[in-house]
Amino acid sequence: MIGPGEVPRLPRGVRVQPDRVRGGWVLLAPERAVTLDAVGQAILAEVDGSRSFGEICARLAAAFGAPEAQIAEDAGGFLSALRERLFLEVSP
């Protein structure tokens, strides 16, 4: 899992852009394209390379009116899966 003080960021060669043919958003990485649902897109929209994971969770909790612990679990699971595929880097 990602600690609250750690800062996630998309490494070079990974970007999120609108899918103008199918609608929605897509994460593009080396030889991979991952369709993002609304939740995934909302999480990645907060990943800017400077906000910590804790700050991201607080912002999402405020935006969606959800408990922060729940957000941390969902967003942590999503970002950890991206990290394992090397689509996301985390710095302390």
Binding site: D19, V21, R32
Partner: peptide, 9 residues
Amino acid sequence: AGLGVLQLH
């Protein structure tokens, strides 16, 4: 791109 291609090799 207009057809929906995302990745170009």
